[in-house]
Amino acid sequence: MHSTEITLEVNEEFRLVTVRNADTLLSVIRDKLGLTGAKPGCLNGDCGTCTIEVDGNPMKSCLMLAVEAQGSKITTVEGLKYTALQTQFVDKFAFQCGYCTPGFIMNAIALIKQYPHANDMMIKEWLESNICRCTGYKEIEEAVKAALATAQAALRQQ
Rank of each mutant, 00 (worst) to 15 (best):
Val28Gly: 01
Thr4His: 14
Arg20Asn: 15
Ala22Cys: 09
Lys32Phe: 09
Asp31Met: 10
Val10Phe: 10
Val19Asn: 05
Leu25Ser: 15
Val17Cys: 00
Val28His: 03
Asn11His: 12
Ser3Thr: 13
Thr7Ile: 00
Gly34Thr: 06
Val17Ser: 02
Ser3Cys: 04
Ala22Gln: 07
His2Val: 09
Asn11Arg: 07
Leu26Asn: 08
Thr36Trp: 03
Val17Gly: 02
Glu13Phe: 00
Leu16Thr: 06
His2Cys: 01
Thr7Met: 00
Lys32His: 10
Thr4Met: 11
Arg30Ser: 03
Gly37Trp: 07
Gly34Ile: 03
Ala22Ser: 12
Ser27Cys: 05
Asp31Trp: 07
Arg30Ile: 07
Lys32Pro: 03
Glu9Ser: 14
Thr4Pro: 01
Ala22Phe: 08
Glu12Ser: 15
Val19Gln: 11
Leu33Pro: 13
Arg30Lys: 10
Thr24Met: 08
Leu25Thr: 15
Ser3Gln: 13
Met1Cys: 00
Glu9Met: 15
Leu25Ala: 14
Val19Cys: 07
Leu26Pro: 03
His2Phe: 07
Gly34Lys: 02
Ala22Trp: 10
Gly37Arg: 04
Glu9Lys: 15
Ser27Phe: 12
Leu8Met: 13
Leu35Phe: 07
Val10Gln: 08
Leu33Trp: 10
Val28Gln: 06
Glu12Ala: 15
Ile29Ala: 03
Glu9Ile: 13
Arg20Thr: 13
Gly37Glu: 04
Ile6His: 06
Gly34His: 05
Leu16Trp: 03
Ser27Gly: 02
Leu26His: 10
Ala22Asp: 08
Arg20Trp: 14
Glu5Met: 14
Leu16Glu: 03
Asn11Tyr: 07
Leu26Cys: 02
Leu35Asn: 11
Ile29Met: 00
Glu13Gln: 15
His2Asn: 13
Leu26Ser: 10
Arg20Ser: 15
Gly37His: 04
Lys32Met: 01
Thr36Arg: 12
Ile6Val: 13
Glu13Trp: 03
His2Gly: 00
Thr24Glu: 08
Thr24Tyr: 09
Ser3Asp: 09
Leu35Lys: 05
Leu35Ala: 11
Arg20Leu: 11
Leu26Trp: 09
Leu26Tyr: 02
Val28Arg: 03
Leu25Arg: 09
Glu12Asp: 15
Arg15Pro: 05
Ser3Arg: 04
Arg15Glu: 10
Gly34Glu: 06
Ile6Pro: 00
Asp23Asn: 12
Leu16Met: 06
Val19Tyr: 05
Ser27Pro: 01
Leu25Tyr: 11
